[in-house]
Design a protein around this nucleic acid. Structure first.
Length: 799
RNA sequence: GCGGCCGUGACGGAAUUGGCAGACGUGCAGGAUUUAGGUUCCUGUGCCUUACAGCGUGUGGGUUCAAAUCCCACCGGCCGCACCA
């Protein structure tokens, strides 16, 4: 019979839907499995084959777990707030709601046609007011606990999108949405105090199963360092210049100090500084430079000496010059450093450029040539002389600083507080009222959701002002506290708000009394396995862990960490090996593949194409190869024997074992390969039993479920194969009675020997020596040693 | 600079407690069936060879009976962060 995948796929998708086959059970005695994939942003472009690969991994795991008797929650939803929909709305003069609904519908249809086993009764949409009500609720909780605040500082601003971006959203100085250059702008915006959770976010990594690269990337992003704060006196003033250093051991090597161009020390001492003109000129230069040149990472050190002020090294009373330079950032530490040119390459470069002293305080390098950043014995360092810099000197120095009251141990983080705002329409309104009398007041919880008002024009204001600011009926309100006239906050939340807690909502998506029933949270959490993209590690993943830790602290969720295990899929590249993009014209539309080859082929191919965690290029011939595999299965199903072939028994059991473990390890490619190999054996044997074949079919079911259901039904299988018990393997049957082992002479393979797995050395050795190909190399020589590993190898060492 | 990782046929990729390198798929070559084939089936396919042998996992060393796998040095590539004090 012809492989009519269109008919088969439609038929089973409809049946699954009708019977609610993939609905998670509310109460169950089964063990639970919560598998989570990153819900998509429903763009106008529709789904990408990358989405298919991203979801197929846990799709297969979830299907297998169902067959293994788990109560599985495998949900899907839509992260639908965001700029693309809004920009499209502006362009086409439609409401973002209309566009978003259309896109969600389109995405849902595509996902259904691939046959994903999502529980469609639990779909969440972050733009639904019944959902964002709770996003606002969590924000208010953060606000009530002092973790949401406003501050006027320099912010990352995208002039093209006209929005303020967080550090996470402007990595590399580029806007994450449109890739324009980011500029620094002084503006008062909302922040979430994620830095308060830096240590908890680090500690939590010890409780979860994250791969090393993800863990390292998060640690790196949080960027914790240990060191000391030291106060340097500014000569002739009563001001202290406070610095942070990770190298208090080198304090005797300080020969100058550098502060960031924006450092307030300058503005506080304009009367004493004698070269303010030069300093102002340099400050301007730096502001202009930051956009273009900082991306290119200029190595040349520039700066200006601050004339009229000088600093005093607190450990030896030496007067040292002070500079402003843009290699020191206002945003890290205290915006000021002690410069140790002998042992820091940047300070060294600066010292060379400005002709400053370089003192060696650690032996081991040649400071005539370059800074020595290694470890060694202290010199020129008074009470530290002779000690090891690392082992003893850091602690001794910190102790000294603390005793004298001139400094103390401290830690710093690279991570900054989360700039939490967008000056746009299509986002959750921030539920805060600005009252002239009471200050910032949260919208009362019972008044949530604070709905997005209808507006005529979604365009943002020229100076980064939200479109909501123009809606007087929205802006003007009464203060919830005092009842007086007040104004609403008009910024909306960033894209990442809704996704920071969506996995909680899936446990109880229709609850209108709470974001989820505590009992249901207790049952389903933590997410057992979360798969998503590497690009979200320093954004969504860290943000949602932060929210979850906070919710845990206020008793709103039962687990400290939200995700027990995290994995990441690799990208699907274009056939030319480059990233799929419209401009390169190498984009593959998953629906085209479904039309031409079928959903089962697509699903099998995206998992077969390579290592799941790695990127690999699309290859249509290989897609065809996967389809051939499925066709062969269908053909063989029409030609089965009633009795099982005993010769295939061990091959079948080996394959069951392999596929069972490969799915858990996300080694889908080798799992599929082993099923292909079994099919080859089946065809070669020619008399596969129906029972054997049906076991094989169950292995196939998570990958190609439509075809598996169809054949299952034709063969008289009971119920849905999707819910049939996963085949068990018998360990004893995976071991064949005889094996082929390599027979080597001096480590070189010379022949193979079929022998009983448990043959002893004497028997193996005798049989091995009898082989003519082995004889040839042993003849006339003396066997000095025989190495035999049962079932693996036989090696004769001869002389 | 810091952190994570990789280097295997024409291609995607297997093989990692060290034990027959190249599973599986693609591609290619030859053959069969077919009016025809982006069908199906069979055979072959790391390199050099008629064969035997020899050589082969980025390069050079090392450990070992045995190395794609472990160690050292180097070369090349990918990803993330980055003048982070």
């Amino acid at each position: 019979m012809k492989y009519n995948f269109k008919e088969i796929e439609k038929k089973w998708q409809d049946k699954w839907e009708e019977d609610g086959v993939f609905r998670a059970e509310e109460t169950s005695d089964k063990p639970k499995f919560y598998g989570l994939v990153e819900f998509p942003y429903p763009s106008g472009a529709g789904m990408h084959v990358g989405h298919i690969k991203a979801y197929s991994g846990l799709e297969v795991v979830s299907r297998k777990r169902r067959m293994q008797g788990y109560n599985v929650l495998f949900p899907i939803g839509f992260d639908a707030f965001g700029l693309p929909a809004e920009n499209y709305a502006i362009k086409t003069n439609q409401h973002p709601r209309v566009i978003t609904d259309k896109n969600i519908q389109h995405f849902s249809e595509q996902l259904r046609r691939v046959g994903f086993s999502f529980d469609w009764s639990r779909v969440v949409d972050t733009t639904d007011e019944n959902y964002y009500k709770w996003t606002q609720w969590i924000f208010l909780k953060l606000f009530d606990h002092g973790l949401a605040y406003r501050d006027k500082t320099f912010v990352n601003y995208c002039p093209s999108c006209k929005v303020v971006l967080s550090n996470e959203d402007s990595q590399g100085g580029k806007c994450d949405i449109c890739h324009s250059d980011i500029i620094q702008k002084s503006k008062e915006v909302w922040y979430l105090r994620i830095t308060e959770y830096a240590d908890k976010l680090l500690d939590g990594l010890d409780q979860v199963d994250f791969p090393e690269n993800i863990r390292a990337q998060e640690e790196n992003w949080i960027g914790k360092s240990r060191g000391a704060f030291v106060n340097f006196k500014i000569d002739g003033t009563d001001e202290d210049l406070r610095i942070y250093t990770t190298r208090p051991d080198t304090l005797f090597g300080v020969t100058f100090m550098v502060i960031a161009p924006e450092h307030p020390l300058i503005d506080n001492n304009t009367d004493k500084i004698t070269n303010m003109d030069a300093i102002r000129a340099y400050r301007e230069e730096c502001q202009k430079k930051s956009e273009f040149e900082r991306v290119n990472m200029v190595k040349d050190k520039t700066g200006v000496k601050v004339e009229g002020l000088c600093a005093v090294n607190p450990v030896n009373g030496k007067k040292i010059p002070l500079f402003i330079a843009d290699y020191v950032m206002m945003g890290y530490g205290t915006g000021a450093i002690m410069a140790v040119p002998g042992h820091d390459q940047r300070d060294y470069d600066f010292a060379k450029a400005f002709g400053l002293d370089i003192i060696e305080v650690i032996k081991g390098g040649d400071i005539e040539k370059e800074a020595y950043t290694g470890d060694g014995e202290m010199v020129n360092s008074d009470f530290l002389n002779g000690y090891d810099n690392k082992k003893d000197s850091i602690d001794r120095m910190i102790q000294y600083l603390e005793e004298k009251g001139i400094g103390e141990a401290g830690v710093q983080y690279k991570m900054k507080d989360w700039a939490f705002n967008r000056q746009r329409y299509w986002g959750e309104p921030i539920p805060i009222v600005h009252c002239p009398k009471c200050g910032m007041v949260g919208v009362p919880y019972e008044e949530l959701p604070l709905r997005l008002p209808e507006v005529e024009n979604f365009k943002p204001g020229e100076d980064g002002e939200s479109p909501l600011a123009k809606i007087e009926s929205f802006v003007n309100c009464k203060c919830p506290k005092c009842g007086g006239d007040a104004k609403r906050e008009t910024d909306t939340m960033p894209q990442w708000a809704g996704s920071s807690w969506y996995f909680l909502r899936y446990t109880d998506p229709h609850n209108d009394k709470a974001f989820a029933d505590p009992e249901k949270l207790k049952y389903w959490l933590p997410v057992d396995w979360y798969n998503g993209g590497m690009e979200h590690v320093t954004r969504h993943l860290i943000y949602s862990r932060f929210w979850h830790h906070f919710l845990y602290d206020i008793g709103a969720v039962p687990t400290y960490e939200p995700y027990a295990k995290r994995t990441a899929q690799g990208m699907v590249l274009g056939a030319d090996g480059s990233k799929m993009s419209k401009s390169l014209g190498n984009v593959v539309d998953p629906l085209d593949v479904v039309e031409e080859f079928g959903a089962d082929t697509l699903r099998t191919y995206v998992l077969f194409m390579g290592d799941y965690g790695a990127s690999s290029p699309w290859n249509e011939s290989s897609v065809r190869g996967c389809k051939r595999f499925l066709e062969r299965i269908l053909r063989l199903s029409e030609n089965l024997g009633e009795k099982d072939d005993p010769g295939l028994e061990s091959k079948l059991h080996k394959t069951i074992k392999k596929v069972t473990s490969d799915i858990e390890e996300m080694k889908f490619n080798t799992g599929i390969a082993s099923m292909m190999a079994l099919m080859n054996d089946f065809e070669a044997a020619g008399n596969v039993g129906k029972g054997q074949f049906m076991d094989f079919l169950k292995l196939l079911a998570p990958f190609a479920p439509h075809l598996a259901e169809e054949i299952w039904e034709r063969l008289g299988g009971e119920g849905y194969i999707s819910l049939a018990p996963w085949p068990e393997y018998d360990e004893s049957k995976t071991i064949e009675a005889t094996v082929e082992i390599s027979v080597q002479v001096n480590g070189k393979p010379r022949d193979v020997l079929r022998i009983a797995v448990d043959a002893d050395e004497a028997a193996a050795s005798a049989a091995g020596l009898a082989l003519s190909k082995v004889q040839k190399f042993v003849e006339g020589k003396r066997v000095v040693k025989t190495i035999y590993r049962a079932g693996k190898i036989l090696n004769f060492v001869v002389k």
